[in-house]
Nucleic acid binder design. Structure first.
Lengths: 306, 306
DNA sequence: CGCGCCTGATACCTCCAATGCATCTTCTGA
DNA sequence: TCAGAAGATGCATTGGAGGTATCAGGCGCG
């Protein structure tokens, strides 16, 4: 497969016409026909249906087209990135974060940074904590916001904020009026919990083990807002961070109690691959987060529930 | 530039060693050296620093590397997509939606679909309504959830739900107790509103014009939750959809009043590019949304405010 | 109904550029 | 200071991409 072949394929697909595409590409029609034929042979499938004199994408061709476009787009973006490699004011920062941080921390950090360097673009991604480290390793993302600190090797780490995990209980729960609880007091209760691979899951498992029990799982979910809603609906209890929102304070009807057990908190931080050279844009953002991040994180609004 | 060159570049960058990379690639060391040199010449920059006998990425090389990886990744994904082109149970659906739908509609639709076809992957994107049509045209996304219906040509459209737009007012506002209001009653009030290019912005502008005034803008934002928070903080009034959440009902303290004016609503729908062949995965999802979507959208929980 | 044109495919040929082999140069460590 | 390791360079070879000429098939028009 050649990059030229990809260009050829895209041009023909866009026009559904070999001769006209050949004119635009400044190649001859037979050459273009051959080029397409070679690509089809390599991919092992017809990319175009030749029905009479019309040329139309097959299902396979249609499936391949967007990927071909994106591949060329990446190369174009790569060229652009080279030009901006040592300019901290332009270019793209790719930042991934765990789902729980999407609504408050990431917007707060990015928003604050944009006032300084408004031309920096961001490519964002969201996934589970387990997926984060892999994303760094594969080079899909430059930086990740995650919790707890990944154990994979050669990762740099800047802690941003340590926030308590509170025990969310249904409003009519026997403990709902309490100020502080011990985890052992809910050892027999059903838990609403994140799936394996998510940060809060491993933390919850560890804390419960330290308290002398394994949590009985009533429901496994992904989003914290969902889990909190399920607790509110009476399905069980959960260890969840304080409710926050990028916008404004919104009271929620799910009581969240302080937990007396030691270490009932999570530390959120920024991680990056130390073996990699970070482009100037990324490094400038990383430095900003390391210095200003903790203050910004603390300033993010918490949602009271009473 | 050749795809082989990209592979060569990545292999050398990963190992910081030409000879070992050459062994892995099954080419000779001189050939690989030349290949890298050609790539550097084409890109007009050194990708590696040759300090003594060690080979290390330059800032430019480091900036180019992730793009090269992603380009190859796209080609790999393209090959996979061809294999899955007529299998509705595997492959990837790329779906973008306007910010206002990220928290409830998109998760509801995807969640419902996953119970049917659990192996279908989703690539998601969020942006403004104005950016949506462009994303379809450029082929970046297969499907978009947006409102109002885009005017760009050759788009297919399935309306999913028409929801009223309510007038959000601060809790201590003179109209806060009212059941119904006319827009003209707030003609002189400051508005909190989305930026230009967002769906609610154009709808609000149009409705106010129909009511005989142009809204005085106190604040321009993006996220509806933010706007609602600002209204709650007393900065102005806003035309906003009913508060919803994927999780559970959370009462909010911002009164939202029914508006008597005709057409004070927005229709959310699914759009796609009709000129494109949609792969079987995408088409199956589209069909599902067209048939089941309206019911799922109506079932999405609304958040009461009182 | 058949002729001619439009469009894409095929045959053949040429030429360039990518790769391999042999060799040179340079840096490092003993 | 010398030997070995590692990357660069010169030269020859070859494979494949693309050009020219031509063929084949479908559709419109007389």
């Amino acid at each position: 497969m050649t990059i030229e072949q990809l260009r050829h394929f895209i041009a023909v697909a866009e026009r559904e016409h070999v001769t006209r595409a050949a004119q635009v590409l400044h190649v001859t029609q037979p050459g273009l026909s051959r080029s397409i034929a070679r690509l089809e042979e390599e991919l092992g499938t017809a990319l175009f249906d030749r029905i009479g004199r019309v040329v139309r994408l097959t299902a396979q061709g249609a499936a391949f087209l967007p990927h071909a476009r994106r591949a060329l787009g990446e190369l174009e973006a790569g060229r652009a990135a080279i030009g901006e490699a040592d300019d901290p004011d332009h270019g793209e920062v790719s930042l991934a974060f765990v789902h729980t941080l999407g609504s408050w921390l990431a917007p707060a950090l990015i928003g604050a940074y944009r006032t300084r360097r408004p031309d920096v673009r961001f490519r964002l991604g969201q996934d589970s904590a387990a997926a984060m480290a892999g994303a760094l390793e594969r080079g899909t993302f430059d930086l990740i916001l995650t919790s707890p600190r990944p154990e994979a090797g050669d990762l740099g780490w800047t802690p941003l904020i340590t926030e308590p995990l509170l025990l969310a209980v249904p409003p009519d729960h026997r403990l709902a009026g309490r100020r502080r609880v011990h985890l052992a007091e809910v050892a027999d209760e059903p838990f609403v919990i994140q799936r394996h691979g998510y940060g809060l899951r491993s933390i919850t498992d560890d804390l419960c083990r330290a308290a002398g029990f394994a949590p009985r799982v009533a429901f496994e979910g992904e989003e914290v807002a969902t889990l909190r809603g399920l607790v509110g609906a009476g399905l069980g209890v959960a260890l969840l961070p304080i409710a926050r929102s990028a916008g404004a304070a919104i009271p929620i009807p799910v009581p969240q109690l302080r937990v007396a057990d030691r270490g009932c908190s999570r530390t959120i931080g920024l991680a990056w691959e130390t073996r990699r050279h970070l482009p100037a844009v990324v490094d400038a953002f990383r430095t900003f987060i390391a210095t200003e991040g903790p203050a910004l994180a603390r300033a993010s609004p918490e949602i009271p529930w009473e």
